[in-house]
Simulated scan of single mutants.
Amino acid sequence: MSELTICRAEHFNAAHRLHNPAWDEARNQQVFGKCNNPNYHGHNYNLEVRLTGPIDPETGYVYDLKALGTLIKREVLNRFDHKNLNLDTEEFRVLNPTAENIAVVIWNRLRPALPASLKLAVTLHETDRNFVEYDGGA
């Protein structure tokens, strides 16, 4: 049977500061610019989670989208929405919360809860023009 991709879109709001503590303030400012604001700044993140796999002949689903929404709420939204990623989350206390790192963290939080037979990809839009995509690097 051929494979099909299903998608679930969600959004969350979070603040962060891009900063490398091994660098001085001048280097951080040069590399991260206004994203290095010591008082943080926020984004309205748009998240797209895609699962690819065969359609189950009994249910007609690749995966139950309601169950996927519940999983995303538990593993991502409840954890990151309306949070300061640097201060309020364990994942980003030492990991720079770039869009790239956030996408990888989200993928790693979702992957263990999904059937291994399904391919998982995450797209995270930080702004309307800037977004990243991660599929586990396989």
Rank of each mutant, 00 (worst) to 15 (best):
residue 104 V to S: 01
residue 82 H to Q: 15
residue 84 N to W: 01
residue 118 L to G: 08
residue 109 R to A: 00
residue 81 D to Y: 06
residue 112 P to S: 07
residue 116 A to M: 08
residue 89 T to K: 04
residue 114 L to S: 09
residue 83 K to H: 08
residue 87 L to D: 13
residue 90 E to R: 04
residue 82 H to I: 07
residue 101 N to I: 03
residue 97 P to Q: 10
residue 89 T to A: 10
residue 116 A to L: 08
residue 100 E to H: 09
residue 108 N to L: 10
residue 107 W to S: 08
residue 79 R to H: 07
residue 109 R to F: 06
residue 86 N to C: 11
residue 80 F to K: 11
residue 104 V to I: 15
residue 96 N to I: 00
residue 79 R to W: 10
residue 114 L to D: 11
residue 82 H to N: 15
residue 89 T to V: 12
residue 80 F to I: 10
residue 100 E to F: 03
residue 107 W to H: 11
residue 96 N to W: 02
residue 88 D to K: 12
residue 113 A to L: 12
residue 112 P to M: 09
residue 93 R to G: 06
residue 89 T to I: 06
residue 121 A to H: 09
residue 89 T to Q: 09
residue 98 T to Y: 01
residue 81 D to S: 12
residue 121 A to M: 12
residue 97 P to T: 05
residue 86 N to R: 13
residue 119 K to G: 12
residue 100 E to S: 05
residue 95 L to Q: 14
residue 82 H to A: 09
residue 93 R to V: 05
residue 96 N to G: 01
residue 121 A to T: 15
residue 117 S to M: 04
residue 81 D to R: 07
residue 103 A to H: 03
residue 104 V to E: 14
residue 106 I to Y: 00
residue 121 A to I: 09
residue 97 P to I: 13
residue 111 R to H: 07
residue 106 I to T: 02
residue 78 N to Y: 09
residue 110 L to G: 06
residue 95 L to Y: 06
residue 85 L to W: 02
residue 99 A to P: 02
residue 109 R to Y: 09
residue 104 V to P: 11
residue 119 K to M: 09
residue 108 N to C: 09
residue 111 R to V: 02
residue 102 I to F: 06
residue 94 V to R: 14
residue 78 N to H: 10
residue 80 F to L: 15
residue 101 N to V: 03
residue 97 P to F: 11
residue 117 S to K: 06
residue 85 L to H: 06
residue 115 P to Y: 12
residue 79 R to M: 10
residue 107 W to Y: 15
residue 118 L to Q: 04
residue 121 A to P: 06
residue 88 D to M: 12
residue 84 N to P: 01
residue 80 F to W: 14
residue 107 W to G: 03
residue 107 W to F: 15
residue 109 R to T: 00
residue 78 N to A: 07
residue 114 L to N: 09
residue 110 L to M: 10
residue 111 R to Q: 04
residue 78 N to F: 06
residue 110 L to N: 05
residue 101 N to A: 05
residue 96 N to H: 01
residue 103 A to V: 05
residue 107 W to L: 08
residue 97 P to M: 04
residue 100 E to I: 03
residue 88 D to H: 08
residue 87 L to T: 02
residue 115 P to S: 07
residue 114 L to F: 13
residue 110 L to V: 04
residue 78 N to G: 01
residue 120 L to P: 00
residue 97 P to W: 02
residue 79 R to K: 04
residue 90 E to C: 01
residue 85 L to E: 00
residue 111 R to K: 14
residue 94 V to F: 14
residue 81 D to H: 02
residue 92 F to V: 00
residue 79 R to D: 03
residue 115 P to T: 08
residue 110 L to D: 05
residue 90 E to F: 10
residue 99 A to R: 02
residue 112 P to R: 05
residue 101 N to Y: 03
residue 101 N to Q: 06
residue 97 P to E: 11
residue 90 E to S: 10
residue 79 R to V: 14
residue 80 F to S: 10
